[in-house]
């Protein structure tokens, strides 16, 4: 809504600006949206790191992997009822993803508007990385959906035939995973998603440093390094699993 009235918190010096300008008076401020994205992004990054650790148990064989899946369902039992921690985690992750994606959409739209429809020239890695954030983000959203349908809910047509649901504390996660990755389209989709995820995480941590106001050289370097390491670990560790199944190294 165009209007020339300045914000109330302005410490006025000199006469008010005589020029009417396009002003955006409404909505959650972008700096809060970016802070929320940094926090929710970090929550997901922490989850991705823990999830990676669990995934790698696949290389130790079915018992280790199924044991991990069963353990997830019974963390802190008997202090908490079975699956309570798991459900708590799921709720936090879903809310965090909703906030993250919602904020990303608003920030993106505001950026397009403030640019005023003019073309831009992108120069350098940093710039292309920022450009890739919404691109990789949208694919990641699709990936998260497919992944849940495939290996958590076991819903056709995404899940492999013969998907076995966990029953009475016994998980069939290993069998389901192998069955899913024996389908080439599924395996290569997971590998591609991991490439995009690692790009998103690497650039995401650099963004996080700026959005949380890290100005010191050491803080910024440390956060970038953590992001880079996690990105490489996610790429090598997670993508190795579908590749290993396709190559027939694990079955």
């Amino acid at each position: 809504m165009p209007s020339s009235s300045p914000t109330s918190s302005v410490i006025q010096v000199g006469p008010p600006s005589p020029v009417p300008r396009e002003r955006r008076h409404r909505g959650v401020p972008s700096w809060s949206l970016k802070t929320a994205m940094a926090i929710t992004g970090a929550i997901w990054a922490a989850f991705v790191a823990i999830h990676l650790f669990g995934n790698l148990k696949v290389f130790q064989g079915p018992d280790a992997f199924n044991g991990y899946a069963a353990w997830l369902r019974a963390v802190f039992y008997p202090f908490f009822p079975k699956e309570m921690v798991l459900w708590g985690l799921r709720v936090v992750l879903v809310i965090a993803l909703g906030v993250h994606v919602g904020a990303a959409a608003i920030v993106w739209a505001r950026g397009r508007r403030a640019r005023g429809g003019h073309r831009v020239t992108l120069r350098g890695m940093r710039s292309w990385g920022a450009w890739l954030m919404p691109v990789t983000g949208v694919v990641l959203l699709a990936f998260v959906t497919v992944h849940v349908l495939d290996l958590t809910l076991g819903l056709a047509p995404v899940a492999p035939e013969g998907f076995a649901h966990p029953e009475a504390g016994v998980a069939h996660a290993y069998g389901n995973l192998i069955a899913s990755f024996q389908r080439p389209w599924s395996a290569w989709f997971y590998v591609a998603a991991m490439v995009l995820l690692s790009v998103h995480i690497a650039k995401g941590f650099a963004n996080l440093a700026a959005d949380l106001g890290a100005m010191g050289r050491r803080w910024r370097a440390t956060l970038s390094a953590v992001g880079g390491l996690l990105a490489v670990a996610v790429l090598l560790g997670n993508a190795a699993i579908p590749i290993a199944v396709q190559m027939g190294w694990i079955a």
Binding site: R110, G124, A206
Partner: peptide, 8 residues
């Protein structure tokens, strides 16, 4: 606009 850390 908001900052998305393009660095341009």
């Amino acid at each position: 606009g908001p900052c998305s850390n393009y660095g341009e």
